[in-house]
Design a protein around this nucleic acid. Structure first.
Lengths: 134, 134
DNA sequence: ATCATAAATGCGAATTATTCGCAATTAGAA
DNA sequence: TTCTAATTGCGAATAATTCGCATTTATGAT
């Protein structure tokens, strides 16, 4: 199957298709990495209002289309979630890399929590990258 | 072995023992749950400056004495890390509960990342609690 | 114990990320 | 096409966190 367009993705998730939403989602897909709201605005060439961007991001996160995380740098980062994954952050230089390292939360939810189901999780690793270690 | 006092903990981690640091660490130990900087100041009876509290928290986090996380509510939460654990957050009512559900990052680091070692990780689960589900 | 010094603190002000209120616009159902 | 609820844009407001700098303090050496 070919990849869905931003508009199709929005529709599939029961969202009204507006140009801002398409633009934001498209920029997130292009970025291929976690990106903060302001950087997203830059990517959009200032064509979008920052408050609208924040509202749009909230919406996308609530639908599971976008992964929201934070790297201990006081701002939220957003990433289009094509396939689920997490990151390793270097506490020295801030470099981030993707990792497949993950946890099967859904399967373990009932054993380890009182929640019936878990919708999502945030998982980020911190360490010192090889460049900074030497 | 009996539990170390805040002062001893600080010394063990190579930190200067100051009264603010002892107070902050003590308040965190008493809290027994994640707490934001401002709430910590309240717990301290306003006796400590908020900027100092933030600096102290950074220090404690960098030494691994304190776990810093965020629950998608725009502020950082800090918790004394006596034994390692994480949380499940209800996206409806904000309730948080502890969970033992975790991942053995150190063991898996070399297989899944290019980092030699991982110092810490943030892991938080989001779902809808039983009260809000019904 | 006293001293010297680097580290930690307190204060106020500055930043910066994020949200709010409201009027104007727009997507999608009828 | 029309109607209506949802979305947007704008400006201003909040709230969390950090900064600069003068003052104080903990600790190691004398």
């Amino acid at each position: 199957m070919k990849k869905a367009t931003p508009g199709e993705l929005l529709r599939q998730h029961g969202l009204k298709v507006t140009s801002t939403r398409k633009d934001v989602l498209d920029a997130l897909i292009m970025a291929r990495k976690p990106i903060a709201a302001e950087a997203l605005q830059d990517a959009l060439g200032k064509n979008a209002d920052i408050a609208t961007i924040y509202r749009t991001l909230q919406t996308l996160v609530s639908k599971g289309l976008v992964y929201q995380t934070n790297f201990r740098d006081r701002k939220a980062h957003y990433e289009y979630q094509e396939k689920h994954h997490h990151h390793v952050v270097c506490t020295e230089c801030g470099t981030r890399e993707e990792t497949k390292l993950c946890i099967d939360a859904k399967k373990l939810a009932r054993t380890f929590t009182n929640f019936r189901t878990l919708d999502s999780h945030v998982l980020e690793f911190f360490g010192v990258c090889n460049k900074c270690t030497t």
